[in-house]
Design a protein around this nucleic acid. Sequence first.
DNA 1: TTTAGCACTCCTTTTCCCGGAGTGCTAAAA
DNA 2: TTTTAGCACTCCGGGAAAAGGAGTGCTAAA
Lengths: 349, 349
Amino acid sequence: MELTRRKKEILKIVVEGYIATAEPMGSKAIVEQMSGKISSATVRNELADLTELGYLEQPHTSAGRIPSPAGYRLYVNELMERKPLSAEETAEINRSLSGTMAGTDEMISRAGQMVSSIVGYPTYTVADHKSAATVQRFELIAVDSRSFIAVVMLSDSQVKSQLMALDLPVEAEQLPQLSHLLNTHFTGVGKAEMNGHLMSLSDQVDGNWFLLLNRVVEYAGELLARSERQEVFTNGASQLLKFPEYRDVDKAHDLMSFMVDNKENLPVPAGDTPMQILIGPENVNDALKESSVVIASYDIGDNMRGLVGVVGPTRMDYATVAARLSYFAESLSAMFGKKNQLPPKEEEK
Amino acid sequence: MELTRRKKEILKIVVEGYIATAEPMGSKAIVEQMSGKISSATVRNELADLTELGYLEQPHTSAGRIPSPAGYRLYVNELMERKPLSAEETAEINRSLSGTMAGTDEMISRAGQMVSSIVGYPTYTVADHKSAATVQRFELIAVDSRSFIAVVMLSDSQVKSQLMALDLPVEAEQLPQLSHLLNTHFTGVGKAEMNGHLMSLSDQVDGNWFLLLNRVVEYAGELLARSERQEVFTNGASQLLKFPEYRDVDKAHDLMSFMVDNKENLPVPAGDTPMQILIGPENVNDALKESSVVIASYDIGDNMRGLVGVVGPTRMDYATVAARLSYFAESLSAMFGKKNQLPPKEEEK
DNA sequence: TTTAGCACTCCTTTTCCCGGAGTGCTAAAA
DNA sequence: TTTTAGCACTCCGGGAAAAGGAGTGCTAAA
């Protein structure tokens, strides 16, 4: 049964009022919001209906109403109007994004910081690999007689490198041969198979060479492991303390340490939805049952998807957060698109 | 005037008792700790003396005593016995340190996480460069006709690399010449002078080459800037909420957001002291006036020093923290020593 | 110099009371 | 049938008062 227009209007006022003040809304305050078109008694009747339908709750008999999770859900699905960004806000976001030309993973975690400071809630970020990474290319650069640089380019276009010191001398002329060996045997190969390939080489090459290969392959393996691990970064957890729902230090502590120690269990959207909102008990995880999460995803190259999640009380300001977050996601998609893909068609003509 | 042996004993008991329970200590509880060698009235007289001397304070007339900052200071300087690590603890530290072979900066920030989880207080970490970094070596690696990898080795042995996509085609054969150009003009040079050198090259080289050089030099400049910036990482701020002194959410929020937003102002030890303890009002910064900080430093190669700081209430468990922290610092020094220096003498003989 | 005894202080917790905001229901009005 | 006014009732929150208790400082004796 569809709600009447008036019921929806009242529900919206309750939700937005409660979001703004964290105080239950009474019939009188609602009448004010409706500029007196209607009496408080009528509103009380409507409130009773909405409560019975499960959209509102009463902390106790003689208090006003607050939204139930179902109420928030209806609000988010139908009633909410995304609050547009002010000119200053878009300017600030654009400025903060344009500043750096850092590596992908740093970029991602920094984006989380920005979102957090703009929306005023804690956030978390993940880089989600659609398929397993492999090494695309190895390169070895001589430094001195006892050390060299290993450069590893991954299939997702990330480049990592490390200085490697050795116990045994290596001649610079050998390095090209070694890197050729690496490139023929260990590119396009998953982390799991690397060890096998390495073993099969063990009797074909000189012992010293083998040690060196082993070192580089181990490094590559660790890089692959790290990129599969989908590291989660959290930001601005302390912002939770601003909200009255976390004045109870234990609640705050529970949620904050969950966000830090159990990062991996923070929700990740199911399908390809650009934005997902999880309200209170909709969260699978117990620690989040009294909180809400808004998650947006954006594209990083072809093979990766970035995620930004915003965590807050169920009383979160969905209208503001959703708008900011999708603006962010779009901007980030655009940025990474420009950065990683070939330049646009103007060159093709 | 030196305190009597008995006064010191009592002071020690008060400090340790208050550290353990966060409750003021009364004369009766002290007598228990001293296994009844002495009556509570005597203890009361001693307490009155210690209070007059400024080592103890009384929250109110009819409460027990708590240590004043001066009391903590005396305790830390003379009375404290570092609480030795258990076998499990050393094992845990060793295990967690040996696990990864990550890059220097990641290593450092991870060390902070470990310390935080072991001592149970928030921590922060800094990598302190004794002198300004320069680029030691450039290397360019061709990828395809429109992109290449820039590898930059810094004077502190860090190696960084990034994939660079171009709007203009580059032939693989040109890259060695370009990197030669970079190596002759931009190594051993501070960030500030780089731009000048670049300008002086602007009319000597082809426009396309110049663009490319510009790109790489800019990247190097950013790396240098980043390593000079002395980035501070904080960990485990939420642990503060465990302590009764931060049950007042506003206090907790103040300190936590200070640790996150004003990281740069966290204390850094003055000279070359291996460990420094700052108690309450000894901290310059207002936000820390009611907290204490323990900072240890360790060596990373010749030119860098790492710092780990532990932040907590003045009632911090100095004996435990100091012991854990110096064990950590020694282990880290050893690790970085092994990693970056030439292998030990066994090869020289 | 130490100790027992005791009056006193002042915090903390509990209890009690009261005002007020808000409700639900009833009956009249539209 | 829907809206509105009126009213009794509920229950939270805050403040005052009371009870309880831990710990002190002081005095006088050991």
